[in-house]
């Protein structure tokens, strides 16, 4: 913690950043907070949010960036947040020149809970690297189910949906001004639970974009295992297009370019 606070203090003092988006304890709740050079004394209270009280700082950062397009901000990132930033750069929503990372490595229990293959960012200012989880057992279990059984499980889950849009609202990767999930032509209105197309379209959009932060699932009042669906989407994108969501070195998302040639084969009937 001290290392992190020291870094933040220096960043604010050097005038390199307009502010640091991190967490502060407020009335017993860890909440996102923008630390500014105007109030350096607050840095002493900067904390690393515990795993069960994470917020989509990437999302808040996008709003900050819109309000202050010329300012540089520092932001607290875990492995997933940094993946989010990398993708947001590629999708044109944030400028990498205007973001400074303050990195937090996740503890083992967090990594295990998230089944995270990359539980630390490229810059670590707090915490130590733990063992990543390379395979998602939650996904593997569904993969192993027969079609009918899988269908039953998913339909039971989807049927609990109350169309609160919590998943979309909290997702740092959802930045569309107009959301397809609200288009009356695509989604029949006035139905709860909504048609499963609601969940499937979200899963579609999350493929190659989801950074596996888990906030959607944690936010869902109906405990729908959203993360499993989106993890699978990403796994498919990796398998088919060799695209590592969230990596800066993996190039452009397969959904954003045609390519010089197409070598895929259609599946047999």
């Amino acid at each position: 913690m001290d290392r992190l606070r020291e870094k933040v203090r220096n960043l604010l003092k050097d005038g390199k950043v307009a502010g640091y988006l991190g967490y502060i304890m407020k009335d017993g709740h860890p909440l996102p907070h923008l630390f500014t050079p105007a109030r350096p004394e607050e840095v002493g209270q900067a904390i690393v949010a515990p795993g069960d009280a994470r917020y989509p700082l990437d999302k808040l950062l996008q709003q900050l960036a819109k309000g202050y397009p010329d300012a540089t901000f520092a932001v607290q990132v875990r492995g997933c947040d940094e993946r989010g930033l990398n993708e947001l750069y590629k999708w044109g929503q944030l400028d990498p020149e205007k973001v400074v990372l303050v990195g937090v490595a996740c503890p083992q229990d967090q990594a295990d809970y998230c089944e995270c293959p990359g539980p630390w960012p490229s810059v670590i200012d707090s915490g130590n690297k733990c063992k990543p989880v390379l395979r998602s057992q939650r996904v593997d279990r569904i993969d192993a189910l027969a079609g009918e059984a899988a269908f039953q499980e998913w339909m039971s889950a989807f049927n609990k949906c109350v169309k609160c849009y919590g998943c979309r609202d909290i997702c740092p990767m959802c930045f569309c001004k107009e959301c397809a999930l609200e288009h009356p032509d695509l989604m029949s209105t006035g139905k709860v639970p909504p048609d499963s197309i609601f969940q499937l379209v979200r899963a579609l959009h999350m493929a190659g974009r989801c950074i596996d932060c888990g906030l959607c699932e944690e936010n869902c009042p109906a405990d729908i295992p959203l993360r499993v669906l989106y993890k699978k989407g990403n796994a498919l994108v990796k398998e088919m297009f060799d695209y590592d969501t969230g990596s800066l070195t993996t190039g452009l998302s397969p959904w954003k370019f045609l390519g010089d040639e197409s070598t895929m084969e259609t599946k047999p009937m």
């Binding site: 569904i142 079609g147 339909m155 669906l229 088919m240 259609t266």
Partner: peptide, 13 residues
Amino acid sequence: TFLQDLLKFTGFE
């Protein structure tokens, strides 16, 4: 091709 695999995962025939 992606959609085919995603649907399969959700138990679609």
